[in-house]
Design a protein around this nucleic acid. Structure first.
Lengths: 345, 345
DNA sequence: AACCAAAATGAGCACGTGAACATTTGACAA
DNA sequence: TTGTCAAATGTTCACGTGCTCATTTTGGTT
C-alpha cells in the first residue's frame, strides 16, 4: 500500500532526498522529474516516479517557495462574505486564479465592526501570498492614510480612488446615472429613488449617481426614500409611493428607481397590492439582477454588474508587473425586461 | 520613509539577518522579538522593532514553515461557489478558521464537468495546507476508491459516508423526513413532492427522505414532480398541482413539499394565480430558508440548515488530532411561518 | 573585590528545495 | 581504439527561519 511510510519521519511526508535514495538517484534528478524538466532518461524517470508513488511523496511547498521566492497564491481579505455581490466577485477572482494556476488564500475580518485596512494588510502579509486584494464594504477608518505592505502588490475593492493602491469596483455611480437617464428618456421626469442604508458605500454612490444625473438634466429630485436593502423595506416605501400616485396631481411619480432588486420587488408588491399596475401605472427598475431563478416570472428591468469581471481585474492587478496606480470602474449592463413603460408624448 | 529598501534585494523583502545587522544584534534576537519570546531587554526590543520598521520587515513564511512544519492554513476545494448553500458553509469555515488563527486556501474545480476527488486532492496538496476540505456537489466518479493524501487530514462535504475520510453534510434525508412527518401530523396525508434536478445529490436525498417517510407511515406516495431548483420550474409544477386540486376528488392533494424555497415560491404563485389560497386550500413548505430579505412578507414555512455549523465542524475535523473516520449529519431546524394549515379532524 | 546564578544574547545546525556548475556516461565519427 | 561532444546525472550552494546549545552580560550576595 502506498503511504505506509507517512508517519515514519515525525509526521512529515517524505522528502525528495528519501525518494532519491529509494530510486537510487540523486536528489536533483528527483527534482527534475517532479518539475518535468528535460534531460532525464525514460528509464530513470519511471524509477523515480515509482519511488514517489511508494513513499507518497508530496513536494514540500515551503522548500520550493523559499528557494523560488513565489508562492503562486494571492491573499483575499473579505469583510463580509455573505453579501451576494461579494460572492460573484469571489468567483471571478477564483476563476482568474485558476487560469494562472494560483490559489487564493482567504481571511475574513471580524464581525460587524469596521476594520482598518492596516489590520487586514498586516494579517494577510504574514501568509504565503504574492499579492493581496482587500475588500472594503464600508468605509475603512484609515483609508486615506493606509500604506500597503512594501513588496506586496495591494489592490483595494473600492469605489474611492486611493493614492497608493490600485482600486477596482463596479461603477455604482455610473449605474444609477445610466438608469436615471433611461427613465428620463422614457418620459419619466418624476421618479422616486429608494436608497439603501446610509452606512453602505454602494448605497451612497448609487444615490449620488441618481441625484447628479437629475441635476444635470435640470430636473428637481423628489425627496429620497430610504430602505435597508430588504424586500420588506422596499414594500414599506412602495406603500408610500402608491399613496402619492393615488393622490394624483402634477407631483405624482410615474417611475421608481430602487437601489437593489429586492427593494424593487417590494415596491412592486406594494404598488400592485394598492391596485396599481406595473408598468402601466408606475414603472420600476432595480439594480443587481439578483432575482434570476429566485422568483417566478422575473420581469424586472434592472442593471447587471460585471462582478466576475471585477474579480478578474482585481486578480490581474494583484499579480501584475505594472506598478502604476489606477482607479478602475467596471461598467454595467442594462437588462431590459418589462417593468418600464415608455410614456413620451 | 519606510519600505524604501524593499527593492534593494532582488524584490525580496528584508530578511531577519538584515534587520539584525541594522539593529546591531544577532539574528536570533530578532527572531525572539518577532515571536514575542521572553528574555529580551526592553532596550534591545525597541532597537530591533525600529530596524524592522525601517526595513519593512516581513517574516518569510516559507522559512518559518520549513522549519516549523505547520502552515496554519487549511485547503478548501470548491466545485461551485455560486450555489448559495456553499456560501454559508464557506462562511462557517472562515469563521472557525479565524477563531483558530488559520487562513483558508481555496481552489475552484473547473466548470461543469464532474471532477475526481483525486484531482482535487492532488492540486490541493501541493499548496501550503495542514488539512483539506473537499466539497462535493455532484457525485465524484472516484468517490468509493479515493485515497486521501497521506499525512494531510481530508474531510469531504458529502451525504455519503466514505471508508477513509470523515464526511460531513446537512442531513438532507432527515430534513425531508422531518417535513413530511410535519405535514402528516397536520393531517396532510395527500401531498405532492416537487423534487430538484436528478443529478443533484441533495435532491436525491431529499426525495428519498420524503418517499421513505411516507412508506413508514404506510401512505402511498403520489407521483413525484420534478423541477430544476428555479422558481419558474416550481411555477410550472404548481400549475399542474392547481389543476389537480381544482379537479377535486379523493386524490386531490392538500399540501406540497417543495425541495427548495424558490420552487415553493413558484408553486405558491401558480396556486394563487389559479384562484387557490395558501394555506387555506393548499399548504406549502419549502427547504433552505433562502428567502429572507429577498421577498416581501416572507411567510413560507420551511426548514433551515445549520450550514455554518457544517463549515465549523468540517474545519475542526480537518485540523483535528483524532484520526477516527466519522460520517456526520448535521440536523436542521423547522421554521414555522404561515403556509401550513392544520386540517386534522 | 570576588563570586555566582540568572538573564540576555550569540553561534551553528537543520529544514527541503531549485539553480548553477561539475562530472560522468554514451553515441558516433575519425 | 580513440577523440569529441552532447546528454544525463551528480555536487554544492543559498534561500530564511526556529531550535538547541554555548557564551556573555547583568545584578545581587558574600
Amino acid at each position: 500500500m502506498e503511504g505506509m511510510d507517512q508517519q515514519t519521519r515525525n509526521g512529515r511526508s517524505a522528502s525528495a532526498a528519501e525518494v532519491a535514495a529509494l530510486a537510487g538517484v540523486s536528489r536533483q534528478t528527483v527534482s527534475r522529474v517532479v518539475n518535468g524538466m528535460p534531460n532525464v532518461t525514460e528509464k530513470t524517470r519511471k524509477r523515480v516516479l515509482a519511488a514517489m508513488e511508494e513513499l507518497g511523496f508530496r513536494p514540500n511547498f515551503a522548500g520550493a517557495a523559499l528557494r523560488g521566492g513565489s508562492y503562486r497564491s494571492i491573499g483575499l481579505c473579505m469583510y463580509n462574505i455573505t453579501r451576494v455581490g461579494n460572492l460573484a466577485t469571489l468567483e471571478g477572482i477564483m476563476q482568474a486564479a485558476r487560469e494562472h494556476d494560483f490559489a487564493v488564500t482567504m481571511i475574513e475580518m471580524g464581525g460587524d465592526k469596521p476594520y482598518a485596512l492596516a489590520d487586514a494588510s498586516r494579517r494577510m502579509v504574514e501568509r504565503p501570498v504574492d499579492g493581496m486584494i482587500l475588500n472594503m464594504n464600508r468605509m475603512a477608518p484609515d483609508f486615506e492614510e493606509f500604506v500597503p505592505q512594501p513588496g506586496v502588490r495591494t489592490v483595494i475593492l473600492s469605489m474611492y480612488a486611493h493614492p497608493r493602491c490600485t482600486t477596482i469596483d463596479s461603477d455604482q455611480y455610473g449605474s444609477c446615472e445610466l438608469l436615471t437617464n433611461y427613465l428620463l428618456e422614457h418620459g419619466h421626469s418624476n421618479m422616486r429613488f429608494v436608497a439603501g442604508p446610509e452606512n453602505s458605500i454602494s448605497s451612497r454612490f448609487r444615490e449620488a449617481g441618481w441625484r447628479d444625473t437629475l441635476g444635470r438634466a435640470h430636473v428637481d429630485a423628489a425627496p429620497m426614500l430610504r430602505g435597508d436593502w430588504s424586500a420588506d423595506s422596499g414594500y414599506a416605501m412602495g406603500e408610500r409611493i402608491a399613496a402619492e400616485v393615488l393622490a394624483g396631481g402634477s407631483q405624482a411619480p410615474t417611475a421608481v428607481l430602487a437601489a437593489n432588486d429586492q427593494m424593487a420587488l417590494g415596491v412592486i408588491a406594494a404598488l400592485e397590492n394598492a391596485g396599481l399596475s406595473v408598468p402601466d401605472d408606475v414603472s420600476v427598475v432595480g439594480i443587481d439582477d439578483a432575482l434570476e431563478g429566485l422568483v417566478p416570472h422575473n420581469r424586472l428591468t434592472t442593471l447587471r454588474f460585471d462582478l466576475r469581471g471585477v474579480g478578474k481585474l482585481a486578480f490581474e492587478a494583484a499579480i501584475g508587473e505594472s506598478s502604476s496606480i489606477e482607479a478602475i470602474h467596471v461598467p454595467s449592463t442594462l437588462v431590459e425586461r418589462s417593468t418600464v413603460r415608455d410614456i413620451r408624448g
